[in-house]
């Protein structure tokens, strides 16, 4: 148990970071029925911006800048790559998402020169080492779950108790009827992307504080895993995504702790396939029947 403890603490922390990304997937899927393949790359870009910004300016300017830049990126992606395809078949939308992911990665390669950018103490306080129950870890590991829960509570409040939240729920329920009821659907969708990117940026700052560098492919794996978390929890459901993310983060770190690091990635996908075959609606998802 004592040996597994650091892995458990890490698991909760990684789970929190996955949760922040997973919400972006689940919100977008809920409304557009689109797997936003570019979301993992938005996450990576946030990490890169953080590296560049924190090395050239104090962190209290740099961090808001990262958030703003990521939100703008998410907004622009939606407007340029997804909005023109609103009436197109779903496959075109997915292909467009894959194209955006490809473009962002190539652009990042061009800007960074393909060299992983080293992360050096971007945010002073949270990257200090602390000892908890005899296990040494960075403070960010403890901050992540708390911050995640706070943000999720705020988001749930936003969705359940504000006007824009109600519009989002309506759009997720029935896209066309929501439009007929006078909801400005484009504004709602943009808002979804803004929220998703904002949370991904927060997740990215926490995630990369724990890593030595940001490479252009760094976004792929966390992105896919967060997606699996969203599916596991029941896609479209925010509590589901959060619970799914924590479970996946924990399982992954436990597998690493048992010495099967090679399979920690494979486990996530195995879980995905099992979930899709046994209970495609996930833990908290609603059942949808296909109409002919």
């Amino acid at each position: 148990m004592q040996e597994l403890l650091p892995y458990l603490i890490n698991g909760i922390s990684v789970g929190g970071q996955y949760a922040l990304i997973a919400i972006g997937y689940t919100l977008v899927y809920g409304i557009l029925r689109l797997i936003n393949f570019a979301h993992g790359d938005v996450f990576m870009v946030a990490g890169l911006v953080m590296v560049y910004a924190t090395t050239s300016m104090p962190f209290y300017i740099a961090l808001p800048l990262v958030l703003i830049a990521t939100v703008i990126l998410g907004f622009v992606i939606e407007r340029v790559a997804y909005k023109p395809l609103r009436s197109a078949p779903r496959m075109s939308l997915m292909i467009s998402a894959i194209g955006v992911s490809y473009l962002i990665q190539n652009l990042a390669f061009y800007i960074t020169g393909g060299v992983p950018q080293p992360v050096s103490n971007p945010i002073p306080w949270i990257s200090e080492n602390v000892t908890i129950l005899g296990a040494s870890t960075k403070r960010v590991t403890l901050v992540t779950p708390v911050l995640t829960i706070l943000l999720v509570v705020a988001l749930v409040y936003l969705i359940n108790h504000t006007k824009i939240g109600m519009a989002m729920r309506a759009a997720a329920k029935d896209f066309e009827t929501a439009q007929l009821m006078g909801i400005k659907i484009n504004a709602v969708i943009s808002m979804t992307f803004v929220i998703g990117s904002f949370l991904a940026a927060v997740g990215s700052m926490l995630y990369f504080t724990n890593y030595p560098s940001v490479a252009i492919t760094s976004g792929g794996m966390p992105g896919l895993k967060a997606f699996v978390a969203a599916v596991f929890g029941g896609i479209g459901s925010i509590p589901g995504a959060v619970v799914g993310a924590f479970i996946i983060g924990l399982c992954e770190e436990i597998i690493k702790g048992l010495g099967y690091t090679t399979f920690s990635d494979a486990f996530t996908f195995a879980l995905l396939i099992v979930v899709l075959c046994v209970k495609p609606t996930g833990l908290f998802g609603e059942k949808v029947t296909d109409k002919v």
């Binding site: 029925r33 896919l224 996908f269 195995a270 899709l276």
Partner: peptide, 22 residues
């Protein structure tokens, strides 16, 4: 996997490819 539809199929096959690679 083939019982799944459209995007679920896509993500499941993507997952299988990753498992194979690992």
């Amino acid at each position: 996997v083939l019982r799944l539809k459209s995007d679920y199929l896509a993500i499941a096959t993507l997952g299988f490819a990753e498992i194979l690679r690992a």
